[in-house]
Design a protein around this nucleic acid. Sequence first.
DNA 1: GAGCATTTGTTTGTGTACAAACGGAACTCT
DNA 2: AGAGTTCCGTTTGTACACAAACAAATGCTC
Lengths: 169, 169
Amino acid sequence: MRSRGPVKWKNRNDSARLRVTGDKGTAVPDDQETIDYRLDAQVGFLLRKANQRHLAIFAAGIDNLTPLQFASLAKLLEEGPLSQNALGRATAMDAATIKGVIGRLRDRGLVTTLPDAGDRRRLTVALTASGRSLVSALTQTASKISADTLGPLTPDEQQLFLRLLQRLT
Amino acid sequence: MRSRGPVKWKNRNDSARLRVTGDKGTAVPDDQETIDYRLDAQVGFLLRKANQRHLAIFAAGIDNLTPLQFASLAKLLEEGPLSQNALGRATAMDAATIKGVIGRLRDRGLVTTLPDAGDRRRLTVALTASGRSLVSALTQTASKISADTLGPLTPDEQQLFLRLLQRLT
DNA sequence: GAGCATTTGTTTGTGTACAAACGGAACTCT
DNA sequence: AGAGTTCCGTTTGTACACAAACAAATGCTC
């Protein structure tokens, strides 16, 4: 914990910017080092913005279902009926979140929830006929949304990006 | 709107999975086509999961500040005092969101808000001394959080990923 | 300089997100 | 069979996230 002393900041209210001291001649003391932290270059910030853009594209394509609601329906279409928590795990939502999502889908008659016969703790979530036909009709749109989100990249870059992204999950 | 009729789904409650019909010999009728939509392969889903992972890494490294709160402080350190909405734009938050974030930071004495002299609509947000020293002390930690988030990738891949990601924002 | 559009911040309402604590059911292991 | 553990779903509380509607201040234009 000796390496770098208190951080120096050298910005003013004008357009000044923090930068790592890159002077050539002068010997720079160790603790005069300045940390260059630019928000716009951080992964987290970029992930958040990319997600925002995707959300906007999604909302423009499918306006009567949120991404999470659609994900739940799509997963049920893929896998068939699942317990509420299992569906949550499959769609990366925790127990509290999936409960809200399923509640809203049930209110709209897109899924049913009925207690499991074998395990009295479980609540089995299943598509209704109208839920099933709704998701089925929307899968093409959803695929286009994914394509549009990746639109700024070339096909090769898209493949590469998806592979890298997957490793960060 | 003639091309593809109602989507066929061929999954049961067992482990069946939708697939594009890839038969070679048989002539496949146009409307028998099946859409292969796997949630786990969609950009949006992966972006969301990558973001979740990042959020967890962030919370493990900085537990007394949320990512948005830190982003606000960091931006003020970079740019100096900003109006509330301008800060929101700089951190990719809308007006309603930034208001809540600033309110909580102000409650904790990390920023001050005072009416702009020139423009009576504006609310100027500035770091307090304690806010400034807090962010300054955390920039190194924040950099490590970014590095850890990208950890699964090699340095070359990290650069590449960031460049591609930036184009999707 | 009066009218109109824009900008700034606020409020309300809905929908994620997740931590933490809880009661009840199921499992495990002796 | 009983004890401890794990799993299921629920509830509460905090913090985003964004749409929509609003009032006040500002700027722009004719």
